[in-house]
């Protein structure tokens, strides 16, 4: 999937994946897509919940070899 920017949050523990994701989203324009890579298992439900509360859209997510990937479209 196409993304405007990729954030590597692998190896980071909660709350850092969300803190970094939030910062990266702020640097994007509305409609652009941020791709996030994380290894903290808690990121899965937290990113989904954060995206919802911020009004953004989680386009897709995947899990491969322990790496969680998210594609978030900025509101």
């Amino acid at each position: 999937m196409e993304s405007t920017k990729v954030l590597d949050a692998k190896g980071m523990a909660c709350p850092m994946p969300i803190v970094k994701t939030k910062k990266s989203i702020q640097e994007l324009n509305s409609g652009e897509v941020l791709e996030v890579h994380a290894t903290d298992k808690g990121a899965k439900s937290d990113i989904a919940a954060w995206v919802k509360s911020g009004g953004h859209e989680l386009l897709q997510d995947s899990e491969e070899d322990g790496v969680l990937k998210f594609w978030i479209k900025k509101a």
């Binding site: 709350p15 969300i18 803190v19 939030k22 937290d46 919940a49 954060w50 509360s53």
Partner: peptide, 12 residues
């Protein structure tokens, strides 16, 4: 025990 819930990502 009195518990309040507020997700950390809403407090950033």
């Amino acid at each position: 025990v009195d518990v309040i819930n507020e997700p950390y990502f809403n407090l950033l």
